[in-house]
Design a protein around this nucleic acid. Structure first.
Lengths: 227, 227
DNA sequence: CGCTAGATTGAAACGAGTCAATTACGGTGG
DNA sequence: CCACCGTAATTGACTCGTTTCAATCTAGCG
């Protein structure tokens, strides 16, 4: 939907956090350079080793970012949603991508060539500032993730993940954005372990599993205490 | 040493990566606002919960950044050296610090108030751009760290750490920047495990331990193969 | 409606953590 | 400059959680 006419494109661009403070002229400039595209579910946006020349901004849908460990296993790094961007590493640091990006469902994604982006960054401080904010936040959450993986045991990580998801959705019905095996990877454990921990929580009457993706939190209080 | 007169201050500032592209006028501006200070070894620059109002830039020495896991154990996040900055999170995202920063040895550190820094960021794109580069790199290495901690076993992490340190120093004599227990924490393992792995490598004739901080790599080839 | 990737469950093996005791380094003060 | 002290490092024995391997089971897409 949308993203077809210059007008709606500018509107879309204005909704992107890193461009939210641009004035009308700047917005127009950016909109001219943006290449919108709808990607089907499961499309590989880029792979490790690719020279991805674009900053990609998500207008709708979800993107999974993962990495291959030295021993060959997939490690899910994060899931990006509406308003998030990806591909910044390849034009900031230069060089080739060292991770993978796949759409989790049909997603509308606008791409900006790195040359254009560099241009905006050097001319529009607000864009750079917003991007700094985002990267700073992302760095912080990755650091939290790191200390959680090394410091907490699997059960705690599962519980705190569920509570975070519930908080984000504002309800006690959690729908996993990715298959359980990917959530497990994100949480730094094997799918079997994740499954067992969830089963344990269900046995304890704290949650109920609804199909493959749904988890209802029955007793938020007790769940947070079990943390 | 130095950092006393306006002239040497400007020189010092020009050596800081994020300020390296400023012109003479801008350099002068920054130098006026910078507050240099020498911190003794072991000084806590700030703690979790502090409202640290400064961006701190390291001119000499080393700073350890760590975090307390939910279960109360210290997790070393990174070690910052000459040219690195810290404290960006508290003025980018706002709010209070969620980690600790301690000097590892006597260090000369220049502080910039966040208001001044915000000012430079909005006026000088090159500063923002350089900072973006740094944060982007930092994010990348934290992600690598994350996937290594979850994906590789302890022995591999020790070996790849040693090889990285050797590469950085350009020799086969590695000197740990921090006590072994802190390296262990950084690598996501207990000191006992780190000690055992090193002992194993020594038994295999791949390295020799020199006092508490020194490690000589005897057989780089075999070491990298054992990876 | 059937197929396939994902999910679940069980049993067994193993790596890292824990606890505890000893040793060694390195910074300090005499 | 040396002896002393405290912290860090090392080592051993044991425990425990997670992984691994393997066998179903099932949800949900085509």
């Amino acid at each position: 939907m949308g993203c077809m006419h210059a007008h709606s494109l500018e509107h879309l661009v204005s909704l992107v956090p890193i461009f939210s403070k641009l004035d009308a002229d700047e917005l127009h400039e950016v909109a001219k350079r943006v290449r919108p595209r709808v990607h089907p579910r499961g499309e590989q946006l880029y792979s490790a080793g690719d020279d991805n020349p674009n900053l990609m901004i998500i207008h709708s849908g979800w993107v999974k970012v993962s990495r291959l460990t030295a021993s060959g296993h997939e490690q899910v790094i994060r899931v990006l949603g509406v308003g998030d961007f990806l591909g910044e590493a390849t034009f900031m640091g230069g060089g080739l991508a060292d991770h993978y990006a796949v759409t989790l469902e049909e997603s509308e994604i606008c791409s900006l060539h790195r040359d254009d982006m560099r241009d905006y960054l050097s001319r529009s401080p607000s864009v750079a500032y917003k991007m700094l904010e985002t990267l700073s936040t992302r760095l912080g959450s990755t650091e939290v993730q790191l200390s959680s993986v090394t410091g907490e045991e699997a059960g705690h990580r599962v519980v705190s993940y569920l509570m975070r998801m519930a908080e984000d959705s504002g309800s006690n019905q959690v729908t996993l954005p990715i298959p359980k095996k990917d959530v497990a990877s994100y949480l730094g454990m094997k799918p079997e372990t994740f499954s067992r921990r969830l089963a344990g929580l269900e046995d304890a009457g704290l949650v109920r599993l609804n199909g493959n993706r749904g988890i209802d939190i029955l007793d938020p209080e007790a769940l947070s205490r079990s943390y």
